[in-house]
Simulated assay, not measured.
Amino acid sequence: MKLSERVTSMQASPIRKLVPFAEEAKKNGKKVYHLNIGQPDIPTPASFFEAVKNFDEEVLAYSFSQGLPKLIKSFINYYKKYDIHFEEDEVVVTNGGSEALLFSLLATCDHGDEVLIPEPFYTNYNGFGSSAGISVVPITTKAEDGFKLPNKETIQKLISDKTKAILLSNPGNPTGAIYTKEEIYMLRDLAKENDLFIIADEVYREFVYDGFEYMSFAHLEDISDRVIITDSISKRYSACGARIGSIASKNKDLMKEIIKLCQSRLCVPTIEQIGAAALADLGKEYFDETVEEYRKRRDVVYDALSNMDGVICKKPHGAFYIIAKLPVEDAEDFVVWLLKEFDVNNETVMMAPAEGFYATEGLGKDEVRLSYVLNEKDLKKAMDILEKGLEVYSNKK
């Protein structure tokens, strides 16, 4: 029977599609260092689990479609710490950042519309676009330029009468890039001049290093009705499995329409919302310690990559990812080879081939994304395995 083009045209996740090779390696007794996925190993704050344990209702009932009022208030209080001010009818709780992104696209774009996205980008942006019948138009950025945006004129040429929004993550996944004020102001001007929404994926807001200054698109008051902030507790609190995200916007008409989408899936799980609401009480010291830990991990990976023959990468200043250009023709073939045929003391490493993070055909074929979410000891081992693997792989060709 014929399946829908909507589903068959969707891209398989480059982050997860090679998982069967990793599982086979584990069955064969290998230890696999997972640098392919952004799953932090930092403990989830105890307050999340304490709140869940203290849940004592006799019936696990539906929550509100918009989200638990207690959790919405906790998000509002969280944003206030960044001088971002939302009201209760300007925030909805979603099933993770993924649903937040999908709902934002569905609410702003019709079938056949276009969305501009700087590439390389979080690969699921493409999947969300495909499932909604929206075309992704890439704004190409390059590693050698630190993944900075091209000039305004270059981006303007990509805008058509079908363009409805600019979608981007800041700090960036998979690049670790942080947009400057000048770049943010440029996108603001483009949105105003071309009647576009800006969908800002800011889930890595805390993870900024090296004294770089972070600026939210929510700080742009003159386009507040055009800005949609998508967010998640997954990486911020190392709570990926809770699947709690949010959408926030000063555009009240837009938020009323997004509520319809929220109603169609009834609600976000009640218990996870209760746990998430308790996280708002965490102090600044929690983030200071977490960010410092990731900075040290970043340095381990970047320093190692910088000293490998033929590897090209720029130091990322945000999030916990790095894109590296390897001295190989096909990064996916290399990653599969590492899992199937190579090990050091019965240990190997898994990375995400970067080709799937680009919309432009041919780009990223020799690149990988590494997620530095493991502890320093494991990252050092993984980098040693990668370096030795590159030597062997190059000599076998």
Results as ranks from 00 to 15, higher is better:
residue 1 M to Y: 03
residue 8 T to W: 09
residue 13 S to D: 13
residue 13 S to Y: 01
residue 15 I to R: 12
residue 18 L to Q: 09
residue 29 G to Y: 08
residue 33 Y to C: 11
residue 33 Y to F: 15
residue 35 L to I: 09
residue 41 D to N: 09
residue 41 D to F: 08
residue 44 T to I: 13
residue 45 P to V: 11
residue 47 S to L: 13
residue 47 S to W: 00
residue 49 F to P: 01
residue 52 V to S: 01
residue 54 N to R: 14
residue 54 N to Y: 04
residue 55 F to A: 14
residue 59 V to R: 04
residue 61 A to L: 09
residue 64 F to Q: 05
residue 67 G to Y: 00
residue 69 P to C: 12
residue 71 L to E: 10
residue 75 F to E: 08
residue 76 I to S: 02
residue 76 I to N: 09
residue 80 K to W: 06
residue 85 H to L: 07
residue 86 F to V: 02
residue 86 F to Y: 15
residue 90 E to C: 03
residue 91 V to E: 07
residue 92 V to N: 04
residue 92 V to R: 13
residue 92 V to M: 08
residue 93 V to M: 06
residue 94 T to W: 06
residue 98 S to M: 06
residue 98 S to W: 01
residue 101 L to P: 01
residue 101 L to Q: 03
residue 102 L to W: 02
residue 107 A to S: 07
residue 110 D to F: 00
residue 110 D to I: 00
residue 114 E to V: 02
residue 117 I to A: 14
residue 122 Y to D: 06
residue 122 Y to P: 00
residue 123 T to S: 15
residue 124 N to Q: 04
residue 131 S to A: 14
residue 132 A to T: 12
residue 138 P to D: 10
residue 138 P to W: 08
residue 140 T to Q: 14
residue 141 T to H: 09
residue 143 A to Y: 11
residue 145 D to S: 15
residue 146 G to Y: 12
residue 147 F to Y: 15
residue 152 K to G: 05
residue 158 L to K: 12
residue 161 D to E: 15
residue 166 I to S: 13
residue 169 S to E: 01
residue 173 N to E: 14
residue 174 P to K: 11
residue 176 G to D: 13
residue 178 I to S: 04
residue 178 I to N: 11
residue 181 K to F: 03
residue 182 E to L: 06
residue 188 R to W: 06
residue 189 D to L: 03
residue 190 L to W: 10
residue 191 A to W: 05
residue 192 K to G: 09
residue 193 E to T: 12
residue 200 A to K: 01
residue 207 F to K: 11
residue 208 V to E: 13
residue 212 F to T: 04
residue 214 Y to P: 09
residue 215 M to C: 09
residue 215 M to V: 11
residue 217 F to W: 10
residue 218 A to P: 01
residue 224 S to I: 07
residue 226 R to V: 04
residue 239 A to L: 14
residue 242 A to C: 01
residue 245 G to Y: 06
residue 247 I to V: 15
residue 248 A to D: 00
residue 250 K to F: 08
residue 252 K to P: 07
residue 253 D to Q: 11
residue 255 M to L: 03
residue 259 I to E: 12
residue 259 I to M: 14
residue 262 C to W: 00
residue 264 S to K: 01
residue 265 R to D: 05
residue 266 L to R: 06
residue 266 L to G: 00
residue 267 C to T: 09
residue 271 I to E: 08
residue 272 E to G: 03
residue 274 I to Q: 02
residue 277 A to L: 08
residue 279 L to Y: 05
residue 281 D to Y: 07
residue 283 G to W: 04
residue 284 K to Q: 12
residue 290 T to A: 10
residue 293 E to I: 06
residue 295 R to W: 10
residue 300 V to W: 02
residue 305 L to I: 06
residue 305 L to Y: 10
residue 306 S to H: 01
residue 307 N to M: 05
residue 309 D to M: 03
residue 311 V to N: 05
residue 313 C to L: 02
residue 327 P to R: 08
residue 329 E to S: 13
residue 330 D to H: 02
residue 331 A to M: 03
residue 332 E to G: 10
residue 340 K to V: 08
residue 340 K to R: 15
residue 341 E to P: 01
residue 345 N to E: 15
residue 345 N to W: 02
residue 352 A to L: 12
residue 353 P to S: 01
residue 361 E to M: 05
residue 369 R to D: 11
residue 370 L to E: 11
residue 376 E to F: 00
residue 377 K to H: 08
residue 377 K to P: 00
residue 380 K to D: 07
residue 382 A to Q: 02
residue 382 A to E: 07
residue 390 L to Q: 08
residue 391 E to S: 04
